[in-house]
Amino acid sequence: MFGSMQNGASAYAKVGMETGVIAANPHKLIIMLFEGAQIALNNALQQMQAGNIAGKGQAISKAIMIIENGLRASLDKSVGGEIAINLDALYEYMSSRLLLANRNNQPEIIQEVQTLLNDIKSAWEAIAPNSATSTPVTELAGQIQSSSYDALAPNMPRLMKA
């Protein structure tokens, strides 16, 4: 009558993920893409071990889609310069390696790509906006709160100059 518990749990997880995407900043979205690719590759390894060829193919295809349409597509080579160009080449390499892993049923190639993704994700997490600037921002917030500054009040000197 109401559906299975599995469907309910799946719907709940989907809502949680969608809410996380809506609330995330661009930096967090990239981390979520790395996590999604890792989950897909873990699933591919499980399907490979189980001998489920279709499941393995779907999981690897999902990982490739995340790498190509998420991580690679988000690169801005005009702003990112050499780093973006190198990441673009690395993402292309990962995708081609995953195609090979799927075709030849080679879990070690999937593990190689997982290692590469994990290394890039770790570097991305290390440059998180809140990691290096959390203390100064906190101190600035405290200074603003202790003063009579009102962020929502109109800036009168600027308004009077017009």
Rank of each mutant, 00 (worst) to 15 (best):
M1R: 07
M1F: 04
F2L: 12
F2H: 09
M5S: 12
N7A: 13
A9H: 07
A13I: 00
V15W: 01
V15K: 12
M17W: 15
E18K: 02
T19I: 14
G20Q: 10
G20N: 09
I22V: 14
A23H: 01
A23V: 01
A23E: 01
A24S: 10
N25F: 02
N25T: 05
N25G: 06
P26Q: 08
H27A: 08
K28L: 13
L29V: 05
L29N: 06
M32L: 14
F34M: 07
Q38H: 11
L41Q: 10
N43S: 14
N43M: 09
N43Q: 15
A44W: 07
Q47R: 14
Q49N: 10
Q49V: 05
I53P: 00
I53H: 09
I53N: 08
A54V: 12
A54D: 05
G55N: 05
G55C: 04
G57C: 14
Q58V: 08
K62S: 08
I64A: 12
I64W: 03
I64E: 13
I66F: 05
I66D: 04
I66C: 03
I67Y: 07
E68N: 14
G70N: 03
G70H: 07
G70R: 06
L71V: 02
L71I: 03
R72A: 15
A73D: 15
A73W: 07
A73C: 12
D76K: 15
K77C: 01
G81D: 15
I83Q: 12
I83H: 03
A84Q: 06
N86G: 02
L87S: 09
L87M: 11
L87K: 10
L90K: 00
Y91F: 10
Y91P: 03
E92G: 06
M94F: 09
S95H: 05
S95M: 11
S96Y: 05
R97F: 09
A101W: 09
A101M: 13
N104V: 04
N105P: 00
Q106A: 12
E108L: 12
I109M: 11
I109V: 13
I109W: 06
I110Y: 02
Q111R: 15
E112I: 04
V113K: 01
T115G: 06
T115W: 04
T115H: 06
L116S: 10
L117N: 00
N118I: 01
D119L: 01
D119E: 13
I120Q: 10
I120E: 03
S122W: 03
S122D: 14
A123S: 13
E125H: 01
A126V: 00
A126T: 04
S131N: 11
A132H: 04
T135M: 13
V137P: 10
T138W: 03
L140T: 11
A141Q: 11
A141Y: 08
G142F: 06
Q143Y: 06
Q145S: 12
Q145F: 01
S147Q: 07
S147E: 03
Y149F: 15
A151E: 12
A151S: 12
A151Y: 06
L152C: 05
A153Y: 07
P154Q: 11
P154D: 10
N155E: 10
N155H: 11
P157F: 04
M160G: 00
M160K: 15
A162H: 15
